[in-house]
Design a protein around this nucleic acid. Structure first.
Length: 572
DNA sequence: GCCGTTTTCGGCCCGACTGTTTTCAGTCG
C-alpha cells in the first residue's frame, strides 16, 4: 500500500522538477499539496476511495488525478516523464548551496553537468567561468558548496543547535546589543535545524556585526552587510544574524521566525487588508504610514489576529484559528510538574535515585518518576525482578526522607509477542509502568501493530514509551499503524509519551496533534540518563506545543493525586 | 497548479546580498 509520506515525497519531487522547468508557481502548488498530505489525518487512499481528494487544501483537479494514480499503481506516469528530462544526479546537485534551479539548468544544458563529480571537475578546470553571468568567484563558491553538501549535509538536532544559538546571543548581549533573540526554526522549536538564525535590534548595526563575526568559533564569514551577515562555525554550522532598528524589532522577529509558509499567508492577509508587511513593519499601502513594528504581537493584532506562538507558525491552520479566536492555550514548561521517564545507575543512567530526586526538587517539580530498563535489555543492564522490587523500597524511603514524592516505575520492554518483560505481580508493585519497544524493529506493519496493541491491553501498562521508535537522522521508526495505536491508547487510558531526548522527539509534533485530536493523554518526558538531561524537558514541551497541546492534554501537568488516579483508573 | 470578503482569470510575499554586471539575475530565507 502507498503511504501518505510516500505520496508526499512524490509530490515534493514534482515540485523540484517543475522548479527546474522554470515554473515557480507550479512548484509552490506541488509543495503546498505535499505538505497537506504529510499533515493529513487518515490515509490518502481513503480520501481517494471516498472521492474527497479535492477537499484537501492545495489539491485541485490535476493533483487529485495524480494522487489517485499513485494510490492505485504506486507511481505516476507524469512524474516519470519529468524525471526522464533530467539526469538522476540532478537531485544531489539541487542540494548544493549557491546553485539554484536557473543556474543548474544552464550548467546542465551548456556544460553537460549531470552530477556532483561533473560539477567539481568543471569548477576545478575553470570551465564554469566561461558561462555568461558566472565568474571566478562563482567557481570558488560552487566548490565550497560541494564541500558543504558532502561534509555534513544533514540537519542539526534542536538539542545541539539551541545551546550554540544561546551562546552566540549571549556573546552579542555582552557586546552591547540589548535586544537579541533566537529566530527561525529554532524559535519554532523544530526538531531539526538547517541553520541558526539570530535577530538583534540595535541602532548601531555595524557594531553588532563586528561583534558577531568576532565570535571565537566563527571559521569563515560567508557574507556581510549592514543588516545581514552569515558566518560558518568551525563545525560547519551556518549562522545568520539580522540587525534592524529597534522600532522594527517586532516586525523583524515576526518575519525572521517564519515559517516561510506562515509568512506568505501573513503577507497575503496584509495585502487584503490594505497593508504591506515586511521586516521593518506593517505599513498602510496608500500612505505608507507605519502602523506596527516594535512589538511582534502588534503585527498580529493589527491584522485582526490573536498573537500566534512561534511553535504554531507552520501554515497548518494557525492563522485561521487566530482570526477566529480559537488558538489553543498552549502548554508551558512551567505547567510540567514532574518527569516520568528517568534512568538511574541501576540500569544505564549516570545518577543515583537520590541525585535525581534532589535535582527534580531543585527544578521545582512536585514529583519525579524513576524508570530503569527491564531484565531483557541486557545491553542497558536491565534490572532483575529482585532488584526492581528492592528499588521500590528505596523509592519509598527516599520519599519519606526528602519529603518529595519519588515514584518507582519501570521502562519495561515490550517483547516480541507483545507481552511485558516482568510478570504482572511484579509490575503491580510499581507506581506505574512504561512499555517500550527496544528489539526486533523490522517486523512488518501488521505484526508490529499487533505487538503494541497486545501490550496496550495489559492492565499494568500506563504509558507507551517513544511510540514510533525513530532516531532522527539514524533510524526510521518501526512500521506501525500509529493511528490505530492512538485510538486504542485513548480507549484504554494509556498515555503516549512525548520523549524529549533530542534524537528521539517521539511522538513527533504532527503525531502529538493527531493524538490529541483522538483524545489521547500525552506524557512529556526526558528519558534522562543523567541529571543534566532533565533540561531536555523544554524540547518535549516545544514538540508538544508544535502539536497544539494544552495543559489539559498532558498527564504530568496534573498534581500528584490526579496523576495517581489516572494510573489507578487505567489499571482498573 | 490552485484559488476566490477585490477575482472563475490573473494573480501567486518581499527584501538583502553576491557576483558579474554598468542595471540586474539568481539565490536565500
Amino acid at each position: 500500500m502507498v503511504t501518505n509520506s510516500e505520496i508526499a515525497a512524490m509530490l515534493y519531487e514534482f515540485a523540484e522538477l517543475t522548479d527546474l522547468e522554470g515554473d515557480v508557481f507550479k512548484r509552490n502548488a506541488y509543495r503546498r499539496a505535499a505538505q497537506s498530505i504529510e499533515e493529513l489525518d487518515g490515509d490518502v487512499a481513503e480520501y481517494d476511495r471516498e472521492g474527497r481528494l479535492e477537499s484537501i487544501p492545495g489539491v485541485g483537479k490535476a493533483i487529485a488525478q495524480k494522487i489517485a494514480e499513485m494510490v492505485e499503481t504506486g507511481r505516476s506516469a507524469k512524474l516519470e516523464e519529468l524525471r526522464s528530462k533530467f539526469p538522476p544526479g540532478i537531485v544531489e546537485l539541487m542540494k548544493v548551496p549557491e546553485i539554484g534551479p536557473r543556474s543548474l539548468v544552464r550548467l546542465h544544458q551548456e556544460l553537460g553537468i549531470k552530477d556532483l563529480e561533473d560539477l567539481r571537475q568543471a569548477a576545478l578546470q575553470h570551465r564554469i567561468r566561461s558561462l555568461k553571468g558566472f565568474g571566478e568567484r562563482s567557481e570558488e563558491n560552487i566548490l565550497k558548496g560541494i564541500a558543504v553538501v558532502q561534509g555534513q549535509g544533514g540537519r542539526m538536532l534542536l538539542g545541539d543547535a539551541l545551546p550554540i544559538a544561546e551562546a552566540i546571543a549571549a556573546h552579542l548581549r555582552a557586546g552591547g546589543c540589548e535586544e537579541v533573540s533566537v529566530a527561525g526554526s529554532l524559535r519554532r522549536r523544530k526538531e531539526t535545524i538547517g541553520d541558526i538564525d539570530l535577530l538583534a535590534g540595535s541602532d548601531e548595526p555595524l557594531r553588532a556585526m563586528d561583534r558577531f563575526v568576532s565570535y571565537p568559533r566563527v571559521a569563515s564569514v560567508v557574507s556581510r552587510g549592514p543588516t545581514r551577515s552569515t558566518v560558518r562555525l568551525a563545525d560547519g554550522t551556518q549562522v545568520d544574524l539580522r540587525v534592524v532598528p529597534r522600532d522594527s524589532y517586532g516586525a523583524a522577529l515576526q518575519y525572521f521566525t517564519g515559517s516561510k509558509e506562515h509568512n506568505v499567508v501573513m503577507r497575503r492577509i496584509a495585502i487584503q487588508k490594505g497593508f504591506r508587511l515586511n521586516e521593518y513593519g506593517l505599513h498602510r499601502r496608500d500612505s505608507g504610514e507605519m502602523v506596527a513594528g516594535a512589538q511582534e504581537a502588534e503585527i498580529y493584532r493589527t491584522l485582526g489576529l490573536d498573537p500566534i506562538p512561534p511553535e504554531l507558525r507552520e501554515g497548518r491552520g494557525e492563522i485561521e484559528a487566530a482570526g477566529e479566536h480559537r488558538l489553543p492555550s498552549l502548554l508551558r514548561l512551567e505547567d510540567i510538574r514532574g518527569d516520568m521517564h528517568v534512568h538511574t545507575v541501576m540500569s544505564d543512567g549516570r545518577a543515583t535515585m537520590r541525585e535525581i530526586a534532589e535535582a527534580a526538587f531543585r527544578r521545582g517539580y512536585e514529583y519525579i518518576g524513576v524508570t530503569d530498563h527491564s531484565r531483557s535489555l541486557h545491553i542497558a543492564h536491565g534490572l532483575t525482578v529482585d532488584d526492581l522490587l528492592a528499588s521500590v523500597e528505596e523509592a519509598r524511603q527516599l520519599t519519606d526522607e526528602l519529603g518529595f514524592p519519588v515514584l518507582r516505575g519501570a521502562e519495561v520492554d515490550i517483547l516480541e509477542d507483545g507481552s511485558l518483560d516482568y510478570p504482572d505481580e511484579a509490575l503491580a508493585q510499581l507506581d506505574y509502568v512504561i512499555g517500550s519497544v527496544h528489539s526486533r524493529f523490522k517486523m512488518d506493519r501488521r505484526t508490529m501493530t499487533e505487538r503494541v496493541m497486545t501490550a496496550l491491553s495489559n492492565r499494568e501498562l500506563n504509558i507507551l514509551g517513544h511510540p514510533t521508535g525513530r532516531l532522527i537522522g539514524r533510524r526510521e521508526g518501526y512500521d506501525i499503524d500509529i493511528e490505530q495505536v492512538m485510538d486504542e491508547a485513548a480507549r484504554r487510558g494509556v498515555a503516549l509519551e512525548v520523549n524529549g531526548f533530542p534524537d528521539r522527539m517521539d511522538l513527533s509534533d504532527l503525531n502529538c496533534r493527531k493524538a490529541i485530536e483522538r483524545g489521547v493523554t500525552l506524557v512529556l518526558d526526558t528519558d534522562a540518563h543523567g541529571v543534566e538531561q532533565l533540561d531536555n524537558m523544554r524540547f518535549a514541551v516545544g514538540t508538544a506545543r508544535r502539536g497544539w497541546a494544552e495543559r489539559k492534554d498532558v498527564l504530568n501537568a496534573l498534581p500528584l493525586d490526579q496523576l495517581r488516579r489516572f494510573f489507578r483508573v487505567a489499571g482498573a
